[in-house]
Nucleic acid binder design. Structure first.
Length: 599
RNA sequence: GGGGCUGUAGCUCAGCACGGUUAGAGCGCCUGCCUGUCACGCAGGAGGCCGCGGGUUCAAGUCCCGUCAGCCCCGCCA
């Protein structure tokens, strides 16, 4: 390299007029006027117009004539004030330009597959992922990753100042029962044995608490071999934290402070703290889900009581078989076609149907006030009570009802609520509504496995006052877990952990994990708990999701440099890929390894 | 494992419902001209396995079946 860079482009301004500099970067655009050629040169920091004048140096001008888009060049020259009227207010360096006296073409480039100077959101993701390095190099392409860097550094700054230690934990670790499917790594030295990539550093961070670390955090990759979604990748990043001698409140307050600091610093947004806390039970009651989007209201109402004497067959049979009727109010009128679409939507979500009643507050007659094919089944007092329940402030509204098993009514209405809010534009843009979900049950019943499973994970501490219930009615036991939800997306969850061996053993027992299996899988944790484990708890954030939401992106792939497709492939490298037979043999992955072990 | 949407030039897309000349547009690319442009302009040009395979038909980008890939969702994700 003959011409060595002296300045980043963003550093250049009017003060450099008359000074000689060398800048290096890629050619974004060229405007060839024959006797004068303009190149827009960009580096990571900015954009600068470079001028090649035939009259100044015919040789350099000729060289510039061969330069194409995305060529890598270094240019030497004087910074000059642009002629009056020729300034470009669109770019920070728009008042100056670089008059090239020398240029070095460091590399040529094929024509890129997509424009490098435009918003690439219209370009298909397949192409963008295959050429991710070009997308990143394109104008503003690094923005999400620079932002992500700032988020990471701000988090570290905050936690370091609060006395947290960032400590690394292994990726090659041990498969644990419960939870997601593990990614396995075959062991070469131990035929038939496998490491597992961690689903989270959960056990290690608890061990670190026993080790006296007191306050731990890590920004760390986690791995789960499950199907992908817009907000789920097989490898993803957690902000993992754990603290000793704390309770739920300490963790939640610290997290609120951390998020407030982060949003203030990187987005210049002041968050309202503390965040609201809603019990798991209430979340389901009012929103039908444990990850409610509270940017808008439209709460669900329990209407089983109201309709308890109804003769309407659909409602009657559901109520008689122990189901519920729940509903919500949309502040709008809908056409028959729209109502059919909404019914279809509810059915896709698992409802048998969707009942609706249109409401017109100021109608002259009772008949005009309520309109629906099912309204004839209801007595006047029932409708009046319905009106009272929803208490519509608006003149026109539509009530929707789902009658079904409670779980289905909840999940369908939860989806319908989101769907309607989007349709009716009731979701405020640029609003960040955090909410804590607390008082989760410790267990739920797994029909398939016919046993209790942990709602959070097996190391979650039961509520102190519920511990006796472990023996008598474990499904009634609440846990010391908390989730944090942002705009309807779960971005984190944690709990106060069990730090006494007896309690931990009891939980394993209830989960039908035998003492032998517990010893084999978690023996190291159980042993550690016997050596003075302090009370402790923590939380883990889905950092990709948080950053996605902060940037208003629809998929975490947008904030992950090299993400996988929905079929878990990497379009850039082509992973996963076949390997040589020798590698497979070496790892004892072919039938017959048992024999080999005996030899 | 299941449901939905998509696949045509380097990129973004039209054409498909009703099969019928040589498959189009914008951007990009190439060549030439141009000394003040900044999404430069002007003139000319190149560029297509219509995802892939099979079928129906005199004839398929268009209809049918299968398949592959991408996206969204259900299941799954303690």
């Amino acid at each position: 390299m003959r011409l060595k860079r002296t300045h980043y482009i963003e550093k250049l301004n009017k003060e450099f007029i008359g000074k000689e500099v060398i800048v290096s970067g890629w050619v974004l655009r060229r405007r060839d006027h024959g006797g004068v050629i303009f190149l827009d040169l960009r580096d990571r920091t900015g954009l600068l117009q470079v001028v090649f004048e035939e009259g100044l140096d015919p040789k350099i001008h000729e060289l510039a004539d061969s330069i194409r888009i995305e060529y890598v060049i270094s240019v030497k020259g004087l910074i000059r004030k642009r002629p009056p009227g020729m300034e470009n207010p669109k770019i920070p360096t728009g008042e100056i330009e670089l008059v090239a006296s020398d240029v070095e073409i460091l590399n040529t480039s094929k024509t890129p597959p997509f424009p490098m100077d435009e918003d690439l959101s219209e370009v298909s993701e397949v192409v963008r992922l295959k050429y991710r390095y070009l997308e990143m190099r394109a104008l503003d392409g690094l923005k999400p990753f620079i932002f992500r860097h700032q988020v990471n550094q701000t988090i570290r700054e905050f936690l370091n100042n609060r006395g947290f230690l960032e400590i690394e934990t292994p990726f090659l670790t041990k498969s644990t029962p419960e939870g997601a499917r593990d990614y396995l790594v075959p062991s070469r030295l131990y035929p038939g044995k496998f490491y597992a990539l961690p689903q989270s550093p959960q056990l290690f961070k608890q061990i670190l608490m026993v080790a006296g670390v007191d306050k731990y955090y890590q920004i760390v990759k986690c791995f789960r071999d499950e199907d992908l979604r817009a907000d789920r990748q097989p490898e993803f990043t957690q902000l993992d934290m754990e603290m000793s001698f704390v309770d739920e409140n300490d963790v939640m307050i610290l997290v609120e402070e951390l998020l407030a600091y982060l949003f203030e610093k990187v987005l210049n947004i002041t968050l309202d703290t503390p965040f609201p806390r809603i019990s798991y039970e209430d979340a389901l009651r009012y929103y039908g889900t444990d990850r409610p989007d509270i940017r808008f209201d439209m709460k669900l109402k329990e209407l089983s009581d109201l309709f308890k004497d109804t003769s309407f067959k659909v409602f009657r049979s559901v109520l008689d078989s122990g189901g519920v009727i729940k509903g919500l109010k949309a502040p709008a009128n809908f056409s028959r076609k729209e109502l059919d679409e909404l019914t279809g939507f509810a059915q896709e979500m698992g409802a048998k149907g969707l009942a609706w009643i249109k409401y017109n507050k100021n109608a002259k007659s009772f008949e005009e006030k309520w309109s629906s094919p099912i309204v004839k089944f209801f007595e006047k007092p029932v409708l009046e009570k319905l009106e009272e329940t929803f208490n519509p402030l608006e003149d026109i509204a539509t009530f929707f009802f789902v009658a079904d098993r409670e779980e289905i009514a909840n999940s369908v209405l939860a989806e319908l609520r989101i769907h309607l809010a989007k349709k009716l534009n009731l979701v405020p843009e640029k609003k960040f509504s955090f909410v804590w979900i607390v008082d989760f049950p410790l267990f739920e019943w797994d029909e398939e496995e016919n046993r209790l499973v942990s709602v959070h994970h097996p190391f979650t501490h039961p509520k102190e006052e519920d511990i006796p219930l472990l023996e008598t009615d474990p499904l009634k036991v609440k846990s010391r877990a908390y989730d944090i939800v942002l705009n309807g997306i779960e971005i984190g969850g944690g709990s106060i952990r069990i730090h006494k061996k007896e309690v931990q053993k009891k939980i394993f027992e209830l989960l039908k994990i035998s003492p032998d299996e517990a010893e084999e899988k978690f023996g190291f944790l159980l042993t550690a708990l016997e050596y003075g484990a302090p009370p402790h708890g923590g939380i883990a954030f889905g950092l990709d999701r948080l950053i996605m939401l902060m940037l208003g992106k629809k998929s975490i792939r947008e904030v992950i440099p090299f993400p996988k497709t929905q079929r878990a492939q990497c379009l850039l490298t082509g992973a996963p890929a076949e390997v040589k037979i020798e590698q497979i043999l070496e790892l004892h992955l072919l039938p017959g390894w048992e024999k080999k072990k005996e030899n």
